[in-house]
Design a binder for these strands. Structure first.
Lengths: 337, 337
DNA sequence: CGGGCGTATGCATACGATTGCACAAATAAA
DNA sequence: TTTATTTGTGCAATCGTATGCATACGCCCG
């Protein structure tokens, strides 16, 4: 109807479908004459091979599924952009799912991707996920799975993560070197490996400089709403913190805002450091020192790892872990050396 | 091999594939006994219908392609999120492409999606696109096409756009009512319908209040780089503008930053208004008055329109245009009434 | 002239699922 | 008992492509 098929060409040229098929793929057993006739006819009638049919034959559809917990989000959209570019380069299509930090939607997404029979899945876990059966099912179905950033500790599979420990260590070290000594850590639930690794980096940086670790300076505060409650409390402490090291740029921006309206100068009285290096770090006043996570690179690395598993180029038996380097980006919310 | 098929079940139960198929879909001609046996066996062996096979039969793969010019972008990621949710609700998969504002990649994306034989395509044009043949090809292939936001004027097809005219009119009206009279417009190339409609809204608001339209106050300035060059020039004008109405939030944030460091107070001396209502509007100092574009809704509306075309529920012969309402969000970069 | 060989093409089948039609068995009606 | 009707299954073809194997033809050589 809409699209012309091999059979149509065969009928029109009085050939068999097999001949036409072979002619199209430049099979040596086809005479140059026939080949030319077929290819010209195909060209003229805009023949397009039906990928669905080939996929059915080969039982492979050249498609990778990706599950992202949030998309209106600087870091994850950056990762997605890296994933997309690399997948396109390698000739894979991308089936896109969005869990929206919702466990139920995450489960549905996995089901969708398995139903679509993708060759592999890239996933970052939702914050509300506590059961891992759906991820296990991916593996049980012999579909390759690579976690990125928010890895699932309950599942044994390849992963690509940010070097959160080093990033935090480096950032806190910078705060100390620029004269801060009472540094607050606004983190996430320790059940998230990301947050836990950063806390360890934070504490190790303090230890290296022989600074005390004050439990009151370490709080869970990973959303804007929490910041509005937690930051004012911390500003009541005596002595007051002279720096905030924050789990993400949004919290850092709000902490800065709250500190400023409480009468503190940034960075003279209080330094603030974020994590991600999103757009907002350039529009706050002062601009926000932060840790770049190299999200684009993470996306590329994750895709390459997944494709190497799919094609069998990556042969390691156990789990492959890739670590993405971070980079401290000093702007104006921390003092200069 | 990996997956069990209808035939496998048939062989195991000594039935024909047809019977098994019918049993699975609760066909009335199948005896309850057989049905139970089949369904239990299928359940136990985790049978999953091969969607590729069904897609081949029906020649429909329940997949929608989406082409986004930028993804690390508040507005477009918001639209994508609306698209994803609505597509998922309607049982469609999403094949994701990213042109990255690059004409060549946009062309490749279209090819990719047509090769994948998607049922329909949602697209927003890249800034660098001047030829439309690839979009025309979509239509020539009888694939449904809906443009959103950045529509392609050279192609006659359904579209969903923001009510840019009303949004601009409303915003500028607010600036005037709060006492501004020399309002600058930082826009985009007039070849983009978006920018042109906003300019018309801007000018009509001025006319309504019998304010002069000064050509020097209207400039192309839609990137951060341009802002750094253009805004300082405008601050040299005599008399100086008392408001900036900007094409997006980034430009607005930078305009504000530049004005502040030039010694102007915001909003007392100069009001600033952005467009989009992205995250950054809450972290600038002062927070940024802006126009919300309801991107999530735009995504939903676009998907629904596309699906109604695919399913034939939308029967209108000509072009269907949907208009998304905007909403002025007054924050602290404009004066109060 | 016939056997052998190479070349070019067609036939048949497969991928996995669906579906119109035929058919057998069982039941109901006459 | 015979005929009609229902009920449950199976056969075969289909979607579009790819491929092993058979076959037809022409040609060369013995």
């Amino acid at each position: 109807m809409g699209q012309i098929t091999l059979k149509d060409i065969a009928k029109a040229l009085n050939l068999s479908p097999s001949t036409v098929s072979r002619a199209m793929q430049n099979h040596p057993a086809i005479s140059p004459g026939t080949r030319r006739i077929v290819q010209e006819y195909a060209e003229e009638h805009k023949y397009k091979p039906n990928t669905l049919a080939m996929q059915l034959r080969t039982n492979r559809n050249n498609t990778i599924g990706v599950i992202v917990p949030e998309i209106v989000h600087y870091f994850f959209s950056t990762v997605l952009s890296g994933i997309q570019q690399e997948a396109e380069n390698e000739g894979y299509n991308l089936l896109f799912c969005h869990s929206n930090e919702d466990y139920e939607r995450e489960v549905r997404s996995v089901k969708t991707l398995l139903d679509a029979r993708v060759c592999g899945i890239l996933a970052s876990q939702s914050k509300t996920t506590n059961h891992f059966q759906h991820f296990q099912e991916i593996i049980d179905n012999d579909v390759h799975l690579v976690f990125f950033d928010r890895i699932c500790t309950g599942i044994n599979t390849d992963k690509v993560v940010i070097d959160d420990y080093a990033g935090a260590l480096h950032a806190v070290d910078h705060l100390i070197q620029t004269g801060c000594s009472r540094i607050a850590f606004l983190g996430s639930s320790p059940s998230m490996p990301i947050a836990n690794n950063r806390r360890m980096g934070y504490e190790d940086a303090l230890r290296r400089h022989k600074l005390p670790i004050d439990k009151r300076l370490s709080r869970i505060c990973d959303t804007v709403e929490l910041a509005r409650a937690v930051v004012p409390e911390m500003l009541q402490l005596d002595p007051v913190p002279d720096a905030f090291f924050c789990i993400n740029d949004e919290v850092a921006a709000y902490a800065m805002q709250i500190a400023k309206s409480a009468g503190f100068r940034v960075p003279e009285d209080i330094s603030v450091c974020g994590f991600t290096n999103s757009y907002i770090t350039d529009v706050t006043d002062p601009t926000l020192t932060t840790v770049d996570q190299h999200g684009f690179e993470m996306g590329q690395v994750a895709v390459r790892l997944l494709i190497n598993r799919i094609t069998g180029k990556e042969t390691k038996q156990g789990v492959v872990s890739r670590l993405i380097k971070t980079e401290l980006v000093v702007k104006n919310s921390t003092r200069s050396l």
